[in-house]
């Protein structure tokens, strides 16, 4: 378990961390999610001891490590750009922490081989980092961090430098690895899809503050504020309220739309809109709309729904939010 208590850090006038308090449960995979400049990387580097806090405390597994050097915090750290030791082979890279700790040769050799097998780099022992792909380098960096049996594993945008396909693969792979190894893991990312996909807890940061902490479903369905809502997934503005595009229902008949809307408490009401474009994205269909007030928004429906509606460009439809009173109660923006 990691506890961050009242952490503060400024660079000149800029407050990177503004009184951040956060508990990260033991064995969890927590994502620190936020836009650039939100303080998520500073928070991670402070936990690692690579940054010094101006105020506040960091406690790892019951030990106050606020003034402790990174060497003695019992952490493993993975950098966005791998930080591979270029002049060492894969084997020596992974063995580094154990060599520093002067472990017996046989033990190092066994442990390195085990780890390389876990990260799928078996047989690459004698290669140099320059001879590996980006994804392989990052898996090597993970093995290197895990070799010293860290109390916590800290990942700073670990997949940020990789292309989309490799990134998605490695994400799944990290999730499975975490299920096997169970080390408390903190992952920094600006990619909401990555956070929703891989983490079991997400802390959303903005301007050096924590906006909301919770499991992915709670954050998605019950965002604490507009920022969290718009940062986790796309949103449409419907009559002054923020609604997810897939929570918008379209109807050609005004009376029917009104009747259906009446059953949903505290909704933004029925909005008349003109279809501007119908875009088929495989299974989903996105319908770009312009409300009579002039604001544009998009609704997302399934292909079956789109076919049943049979909408064409220039047609008038009636849009309403399908989110129930529950959501409206949690997110006041919906109740306007």
């Amino acid at each position: 378990m990691i506890s961050v208590i009242g952490a503060r850090r400024s660079y000149g006038d800029f407050a990177a961390l503004d009184d951040v308090t956060l508990d990260i449960p033991a064995g969890s995979l927590t994502a620190l999610l936020g836009p650039s400049g939100s303080g998520k990387s500073t928070l991670l580097r402070s936990i690692a001891g690579l940054e010094q806090l101006d105020g506040g405390r960091i406690v790892i597994a019951g030990r106050d490590v606020t003034g402790v050097a990174p060497q003695k915090r019992g952490i493993g750290f993975v950098f966005q750009h791998y930080a591979a030791f270029k002049h060492m082979t894969v084997r020596d890279n992974v063995a580094f922490g154990l060599t520093i700790r002067k472990r017996p040769k046989a033990e190092i050799s066994r442990k390195v081989d085990d780890l390389l097998e876990i990260v799928g780099l078996d047989g690459f022992q004698h290669r140099y980092p320059a001879q590996l792909s980006g994804g392989q380098r990052q898996r090597m960096a993970l093995a290197r961090a895990l070799a010293v049996d860290p109390e916590v594993l800290l990942l700073d945008e670990p997949f940020g430098a990789l292309d989309a396909k490799v990134r998605a693969d490695l994400r799944q792979w990290l999730r499975r690895l975490h299920d096997e190894v169970h080390v408390t893991t903190v992952l920094v990312t600006h990619d909401q899809e990555e956070a929703l996909d891989v983490a079991d807890r997400i802390a959303v940061l903005n301007k050096g503050r924590i906006e909301q902490v919770g499991d992915p479903v709670t954050l998605y369905d019950r965002p604490a504020n507009d920022f969290v809502m718009s940062f986790l997934g796309s949103v449409a503005r419907l009559g002054g309220a923020l609604v997810r595009p897939h929570d918008i229902a379209l109807d050609r008949d005004l009376e029917r739309a009104r009747a259906a809307d009446a059953r949903v408490g505290g909704s933004p009401g029925v909005i008349e809109a003109v279809v501007e474009r119908v875009v088929r994205l495989g299974f989903e269909v996105r319908i770009d709309l312009r409300a009579d007030s002039g604001t544009r928004f998009a609704a997302q429906v399934t292909r079956a729904e789109a076919d049943a509606l049979g909408l064409v460009e220039g047609e008038t439809v009636y849009a309403r939010a399908t989110t129930g009173p529950d959501a409206a109660e949690i997110h006041p923006a919906l109740a306007i």
Binding site: A48, G49, L50, A69, P70, Q71, K72, R73, I75, G76, F77, F79, A83, F85, F96, G97, I100, R101, A141, R144, A145, A147, V148
Partner: peptide, 8 residues
Amino acid sequence: QAASTLGA
């Protein structure tokens, strides 16, 4: 920095 997190 990586070396320092690994205990060097």
